[in-house]
């Protein structure tokens, strides 16, 4: 049933453009976009571009998961750290990562590593914030349990705090993947002629609207697949939890 609206939009779009009612020079009908997509997949650069973007997004998300998770745990555990660092972090966090792109480009030059750095940077924040929240939100009762059983600080973190914050961490990672995708595509558009973003700009400069649209469709598909994948991962982090007891997301 959720497909009714998109299908209706596509059909209307097709009818309007092919009947000449909607006659914008660079708005091709869906059928033409589909044809361009097929051509690109068969013998174009699309598979290579797709692989490039997906690789950057996945690595950036993984880096964000580790770095954001680690910093989030540290920040959640040490209130003093939170007080001293929170203001600076909030300042950094509010600068759009995209605004840092020219700086990164000048400092590091164009290339996949700059792309990766920017995407990982932007994606780290959501993981950090949710993980810190999850750690700070570990119930007092569990801290009592750790104390009465005389668990060492390391064991308390490893056996209680980290598992208790896992759900928050995963929720952050889900946001991070999408942020990484956004930043990666923009970075590719701005700096490197690689990936889906590079393909989009190439199509724009080559005045090839059907190809451009085909790339847009693929970008959307990547987003949907990433979300689906991570949504499937979240329940794994919640093993054995009573319903409704998931961490804050």
């Amino acid at each position: 049933m959720s497909l009714v609206v998109p299908v209706a939009v596509l059909v209307t779009w097709q009818l309007l453009t092919s009947a000449g009612v909607l006659d914008l020079e660079f708005l091709p009908p869906p059928v033409e976009i589909g044809r361009a997509l097929a051509v690109e997949v068969m013998d174009g650069e699309l598979p290579v571009d797709l692989a490039h973007t997906v690789a950057v997004v996945l690595i950036a998300t993984a880096v964000a998961g580790v770095v954001g998770g680690g910093l989030g745990v540290a920040l959640g555990l040490v209130p003093a750290l939170r007080i001293h660092v929170a203001a600076s972090f909030d300042f950094l966090r509010t600068i759009p990562a995209i605004a840092l792109m020219p700086i990164a480009l000048l400092l590091l030059g164009p290339g996949p590593s700059t792309e990766l750095l920017l995407a990982a940077y932007a994606a780290t924040w959501p993981v950090l914030v949710t993980t810190a929240g999850g750690v700070a939100g570990v119930p007092d009762r569990l801290r009592d349990v750790a104390r009465t059983l005389r668990l060492s600080a390391a064991r308390t973190v490893g056996r209680i705090v980290v598992p208790a914050a896992a759900a928050s961490w995963l929720a952050g990672a889900r946001v991070a993947a999408i942020v990484a995708l956004h930043v990666t595509v923009v970075a590719e558009m701005v700096m490197s002629p690689a990936g889906l973003g590079g393909g989009l700009v190439e199509s724009l400069q080559g005045l090839n609207p059907p190809r451009m649209w085909a790339y847009v469709v693929v970008c959307g598909l990547v987003g949907i697949l990433l979300q689906g994948l991570l949504r499937r991962l979240v329940p794994l982090g919640l093993t054995g939890r009573p319903a409704g007891a998931a961490g804050p997301s």
Binding site: P139, D144, T148, L151, A164, G240, R241, P242, A245
Partner: peptide, 25 residues
């Protein structure tokens, strides 16, 4: 000394099995 709390639901680790909860200490 070890303490046993009233709110057993909040005092057990939901992600661990019963045996691994018992082994916690």
């Amino acid at each position: 000394a070890v303490m046993v709390f009233q709110d057993y639901a909040a005092a057990l680790l939901p992600w661990r099995t019963v045996a691994r909860n018992v082994a916690l200490g």
